[in-house]
Design a protein around this nucleic acid. Structure first.
Lengths: 262, 262
DNA sequence: GAGTGGTCTAGACCACCGC
DNA sequence: CGGTGGTCTAGACCACTCT
C-alpha cells in the first residue's frame, strides 16, 4: 500500500517516532531474534525519551514497510511492550507510548544488585555453612526425606557496613559443595546456574513480625520490626532447589514490585 | 501436596494427553479466541490432574492434525502455559507438564477475594470518606495541584469480625462521588471500572514497622508489628487514579506472590 | 469509508536433541 | 537421521474507532 498522505489527522507527534524507528535495521546474522531486537530498540527509545509519552507509533502496515519486517514479527515485539506496560494498543486508534511508570519488579535474587543500584557497597558475612539434617519443614519444601542432609547457608548482608538482612537458605545435598568465598563473591543464583541449575519459578510469602532479642542485636534494628520473606525456588525441571528464610531490618529495607494488567 | 520422590522417572506416555486433548474442539462462533480456549482447556486439564506432572504433550504438528487448528494458534496457547510456568518446552524434546507450583500472585485489589478464598467472612467499616486537601505527597503521586481537593477513603477491613487491615486511599476529585455503601459492598477497583476507568499498572512498596498506639488499638495487633503496603495505581491511559496506604496486622496477614523466569 | 489492531491460516527454514 | 520447538514470512478476515 502507498504511504500515508502528508495530511495527518490530529495525531500528536509521530515525526520523532518515524525518525527513531527508521534508525532500526534488523540484523539477520546474529542469533538474536528480530522481534527481540525490535523490542529492545523500542524499549531503549522509550527509556531514553526519544519516544516521549503520548507519542503515537506508526501503524503495523506502516512499520512493515518502514522496517522490512513482517507483521507478525512486529506484533510480537509490540506485545512485549504491552506486557511491560510501556505502550497501550487500541483497535481503531493505534499504539501510544505510556508515561514510564514501571518500577523494577522484585526479581529472583536481587538484593546484591538492589543495593548496588542504590549506590551502596554491599558485603556478606557467612555465619554458617555446611550440611545439616533437614528439619521437617525444610525437608517437606525441598522434597527430600526428613532429616536427610541438606546444605544450610546463613548469611548476614550489609550495606556500607550496616546490617540489612539475615538470610538463611537450604539447598539439596546434590548442589553441594559450595564454599564460603563463592558465596561472598557472587550470588546464590549465579552459583546455581554455574551448576547447570536454572531457577525458573519461586513462591514468596512476605510478612512482618517483631524481632527476637538475638535478631534485633544481629540486625541492629531499633524498632525491632522485621520484614520477613520466605521463598521456595524451583528449577525448569520442576525440582525444588532452594528454600530461603530472610529477615530484613524494617527501617532500612523495603520491597518494590509492579503489578500489571487486570 | 508434596510428591513422594525427589526425582520423577522420565519418559511418560502421551496416552492420557491424547485423550484429554482430543476432547477439545474449537468453538469458532464465540468471540473467545481459539488460542484462549485451548489455553484454558489445557490449564484446567493440568489443574484437575487429567494432565499429570511429567506428562509429555503431543508435538505441535501432531496437535495441528488432532485439533484442526493452525500451528501459530497452538503455539500462542502453549506460550501462555509457559508464561504461567505450567509447562516447559525444549527444542528436540517436547512440551512437558510441570508440577503445580504456581501460587496465585498478588493481584490488583484482591484483599476481599483473598479473605473469601481463605474461607473467612470479610467486612468493611468506612471510618472516613470525603474530599480533603491533598497533602504534598498525595498531590505529587496523584499528579494534581498541591492542596487541591482529593477523595479520601479510610476503611477498616475485618475477617470474621477480627481487624485485618487499615486502608487509606486517595483518589482524584474527578472520580468522586463514591458512597459509603458502595465501598462497603464492592471493591474499589470494581467501582472504578464502573466509571470507565481501567486499572492497568500499580507500583507497590512493601515494608514493615511498629504500630503507633492508635494503630495497635485499632488493629488489635498483639505484636505491634505491621506489614505496610504503599501503592500507586495508574489506568490504561497512564493517569494516576489511586494512592493507597495500607497497614496489615502482621500476625494475621501475609502477602503471597510467584516470581517467574530469570 | 478508511485505518487501526486482533485473530487465524499456510508454509518455510533453522537449531537442537536423541537414536 | 527424523522429530522437536523457535523463528519468520505472506496473506486473509474481522471488530473497532474516527471522520
Amino acid at each position: 500500500m502507498p504511504r500515508a498522505r502528508p495530511t495527518e489527522p490530529r495525531t500528536e507527534t509521530d515525526g520523532p517516532a518515524r525518525t527513531v524507528l527508521t534508525g532500526f535495521v534488523p540484523d539477520r546474522l546474529t542469533p538474536v531474534p528480530i522481534h527481540h531486537q525490535l523490542a529492545t530498540h523500542l524499549q531503549q527509545a522509550i527509556a531514553s525519551g526519544d519516544l516521549a509519552p503520548g507519542t503515537l507509533l506508526p501503524s503495523e502496515p506502516t512499520l512493515v514497510e518502514m522496517l522490512g519486517v513482517s507483521r507478525p514479527t512486529i506484533r510480537r515485539a509490540m506485545q512485549r511492550l504491552v506486557d511491560t506496560a510501556l505502550v497501550v494498543r487500541r483497535r481503531g486508534i493505534g499504539t501510544r507510548v505510556l508515561p514510564p511508570r514501571v518500577s523494577r519488579s522484585i526479581e529472583l535474587a536481587s538484593l546484591h544488585e538492589d543495593l548496588e543500584r542504590a549506590g551502596l557497597h554491599p558485603t556478606t558475612q557467612v555465619l554458617d555453612l555446611g550440611l545439616t539434617p533437614a528439619t521437617d519443614r525444610v525437608a517437606d519444601l525441598l522434597e527430600v526425606r526428613p532429616a536427610s542432609p541438606v546444605l544450610r547457608i546463613v548469611r548476614l548482608r550489609l550495606a556500607d557496613d550496616v546490617p540489612i538482612a539475615l538470610m538463611t537458605n537450604h539447598l539439596p545435598e546434590e548442589l553441594a559443595p559450595i564454599t564460603s568465598t563463592e558465596i561472598e563473591t557472587t550470588s546464590l543464583y549465579r552459583l546455581l546456574r554455574a551448576k547447570a541449575v536454572n531457577p525458573h519459578i519461586a513462591n514468596q510469602t512476605v510478612g512482618a513480625r517483631r524481632a527476637t532479642p538475638e535478631e534485633a542485636d544481629t540486625l541492629q534494628e531499633p524498632s525491632s520490626a522485621l520484614l520477613t520473606v520466605d521463598q521456595v525456588t524451583y528449577d525448569d525441571r520442576g525440582r525444588a532447589i532452594e528454600v530461603g528464610h530472610h529477615l530484613y531490618a524494617a527501617s532500612r529495607y523495603q520491597l518494590h514490585s509492579a503489578l500489571l494488567r487486570t
